[in-house]
Simulated scan of single mutants.
Amino acid sequence: MYATVEAMQRKFGERELIQLTDTEAPYLDAINMDKLNAAMQEANSEIDAYVGSRYALPLQIIPPFLIEIGCNLARYYAVTGDLSENDPVKNRYESSIKTLTKISKGELVLGGSPVGESKPVQTSSNNVMFAVGRRDFGNGGW
């Protein structure tokens, strides 16, 4: 999971999450968890779609910037109504999608090996090893 309730509260604060999700009568002045969870699920699945095209899922270590992207996407999906061209919510969403596109194309890396690529062999000392091949030009001289 990239976007979580805790991450959303740290990033945007409870008041903003209430404003985003408590949009239908009866207004309870509380976070509408159903709406917030739906927005986070949509954001997380979109990130998986981009990242999963390049990396094996689930990721073993989630980079903090993917959590940031997940929160930005979830916030965008939680907004009801139209957004202006210069709205910060829309700008963060578009920037996040550009970053995810770069990840899926391999222009940005998350660490680890992309899907289908082998991992380097780990040795106890991580030394480079050489193998002596055959000699094609005689017994020690040309």
Rank of each mutant, 00 (worst) to 15 (best):
M1V: 14
M1D: 09
M1Q: 09
Y2C: 07
A3C: 07
A3V: 06
A3K: 03
V5Q: 09
E6S: 07
E6W: 07
A7V: 08
M8Y: 10
M8V: 08
R10V: 15
F12V: 04
F12P: 03
F12A: 00
E14W: 04
R15C: 03
R15H: 10
L17I: 06
I18S: 00
I18C: 00
I18L: 01
L20C: 00
L20H: 01
T21C: 08
D22I: 02
E24C: 02
A25Q: 13
Y27Q: 10
L28I: 01
L28Y: 09
D29T: 02
D29H: 12
D29N: 13
A30H: 08
I31P: 00
I31Q: 01
M33C: 01
M33H: 10
L36I: 06
A38V: 01
A38L: 09
A39I: 04
Q41N: 11
Q41F: 13
E42C: 07
A43R: 06
A43D: 06
N44D: 15
S45K: 13
E46N: 10
I47E: 02
I47A: 00
D48Q: 09
A49W: 14
Y50T: 04
V51I: 11
S53R: 14
R54H: 12
Y55V: 01
Y55P: 10
A56F: 13
L57R: 10
P58H: 03
P58C: 02
P58G: 01
Q60Y: 14
Q60A: 11
I61G: 00
I62E: 06
P64R: 05
P64H: 05
L66W: 06
I67D: 05
I67Y: 00
I67T: 10
I67E: 11
E68K: 08
I69F: 04
C71G: 02
C71Q: 02
N72W: 10
N72Q: 12
N72A: 12
L73M: 11
A74R: 12
R75D: 02
Y76H: 11
Y77T: 00
A78I: 01
V79R: 13
T80E: 15
G81D: 08
L83T: 01
E85K: 07
E85F: 14
P88W: 08
K90H: 08
K90G: 08
K90N: 10
Y93E: 07
S95K: 14
I97E: 02
T99S: 08
T99H: 02
L100Y: 04
T101Q: 10
K105S: 12
E107H: 04
E107P: 03
L108S: 09
V109F: 08
L110M: 09
V115C: 09
S118F: 15
S118L: 13
K119H: 11
P120N: 04
P120T: 03
V121C: 07
Q122W: 06
Q122E: 14
Q122P: 03
T123L: 11
S124V: 11
S125I: 06
S125Y: 11
N126A: 05
V128W: 08
M129A: 14
F130Y: 15
F130N: 14
A131E: 12
V132E: 12
R134G: 15
R135L: 15
F137T: 04
N139P: 11
N139G: 13
G140E: 05
G141N: 11
G141Y: 13
G141W: 14
W142R: 12
